[in-house]
Structures are given as structure tokens and as C-alpha cells.
Amino acid sequence: MNAEAPLSLSHPPAPRAECAGRGQMAFAIIAGPLAWFVLVCAGQALASQPCFPGGHRYPQPLPGLHWTWPALIALLALCVLVAFAALIVAWRLYQATRTEEAGRDSGLLDEGVGRTRFMALWGLLYSAGFCVATLFSLAPYLALPRCAG
């Protein structure tokens, strides 16, 4: 229908849509939360398995499962990096689209006009927020004994 449609929108919602690739936008919005979620699920498994396999508890990690600790730290670092990369992409997208609609940035926060910069703002806040949340997950690793509980 597109080519023949007589209806043209008087006020297109995303005049700067071409400035933001869909893949980039998806990465900026999804990567941060996804990295955090992977860390929560995989982190729980890696932290628990050496001390609490099945129904038994051990005061020290089982021999042969010591690799889980460096794996956990490596996973955390990777997740932080992914979220940080998303933050950089989101920042670039936001810079490219912030003039999508007339008005100051506060207008965006209040009204959300301009679909592309609206999404770029989401990417910015999600990736920043989940980057910090993922980084904070380091605290229990450092503070808690490995097999406590």
C-alpha cells in the first residue's frame, strides 16, 4: 500500500530516522539489560556450584571447580564491557538525533517528541544504568566468603 497511499502524515514522527541504524539502536537499548541479566543468571550458577552442588553444602569450594571464580570475574568484566559499549553507541546515537525536534533537551524528557532521539535516550539511560548495576555486582564477590550461606 505504501506507494499509493493517499495519506501522508502532516508531522512525521521520526524525521532523523536515517541517522540511526536499527541494529545500532537495538544494541544500544538491549545490550546493557541483557548483559546484566546474563551476569545474574550465570553468576548465580558459577557462584553456587562449587560450594552447593545438589543437596550438599561444603565450607570450601570443591576441588576441580576452582576455575569458576576467575570465570565469574571474567564474565563480570565482559558484561560491564558490553554494557559500556552500548553506552558509547547510545551516546553517539543521541548526539546524532538530539536536534530531531525543535526544543531543548528538557523538552525531550518531558514530552518525548522525536521518535529516534526518544529511543536514543532510552539506550543512553538503559546502558548507563545497567552498566553501573553490573559493575556493582563486583561488591558481593569481594565482600562475601565464597561458600557462605
Partner: peptide, 13 residues
């Protein structure tokens, strides 16, 4: 009776 380290993630979230 889950391990404390595992629970800490969920407590934080």
C-alpha cells in the same frame, strides 16, 4: 538455604 553469594545478586536487583 541458597548460598549467600548467589542470593546477593537477587537482593541487589
Amino acid at each position: 538455604g541458597l548460598p549467600a553469594l548467589g542470593m546477593s545478586f537477587f537482593s541487589a536487583a
